[in-house]
Amino acid sequence: MSDTLTQQPVGEASGSARGELDILDQLMKPEVQKSLTELVEHLPKLAEMVTIMTKAYDIAQTVATDKVLINDFAGGLSEFVKPITDKAKGIASAAVEAGDRAQSEQTSIGLFGLLRMLKDPQVQKTLRFAQAFLDVQAERQKQR
């Protein structure tokens, strides 16, 4: 048989024959035979895994191509995100306006100005928040 393989002309036929010999040589190795035996022993598990993965792929493919589901998901997400973005835009707008006002005013705030500011409900709310935030941070540092 080796004589017929070596006598074939160089080309596709000899290339495929050489490939067949390489495969046979590989199959004769003990480590390849051991691996094949293990693979055959695990075929039922592999078949089950492939079946599960195929089902998961089919579901993912269906979900990814379902226009109605995608539109519903996008609509639900936008309803969730819109109030947050609106609030963030409002806060950013207020911060920019406050920065502009602070830049335009050149007056100094003295002791009596600070005392008047302390009576402002917004200042009181901000100070209470700052105090609560600092208390929480201190508690967390003690826990570490």
Rank of each mutant, 00 (worst) to 15 (best):
S35N: 10
D135A: 15
L5T: 03
G99C: 06
I59W: 06
P44F: 02
V40P: 05
T37R: 13
L46E: 12
D25R: 05
I59V: 15
A138F: 02
F80D: 00
L43S: 13
L118T: 05
D3A: 02
V96F: 07
A56H: 10
D72F: 01
Y57T: 12
L111I: 01
I23F: 00
K34N: 14
E41M: 08
D120T: 00
I59Q: 10
L21P: 02
F73V: 09
V32R: 12
G110K: 01
D58V: 07
A92C: 02
G19A: 13
L69T: 06
Q106W: 00
L27A: 11
T51S: 14
A56V: 12
L24M: 09
E38C: 03
S14W: 01
F73R: 04
I70H: 02
K55V: 12
L77G: 07
V123D: 05
L134P: 08
T62S: 11
M53T: 02
S2E: 10
R128V: 15
D120A: 04
R18I: 08
I109C: 05
G15S: 09
A64K: 04
Q33S: 10
V32H: 11
F129R: 10
K87F: 09
V40Y: 14
M28Q: 14
L36W: 03
M53H: 06
F133R: 15
V32I: 14
A95H: 00
A138N: 02
T54K: 05
A56S: 14
E48D: 13
G15T: 06
A17L: 08
V50H: 03
K125R: 15
A132P: 03
A94F: 03
L127H: 08
K119E: 06
A130K: 09
E105P: 00
V123R: 03
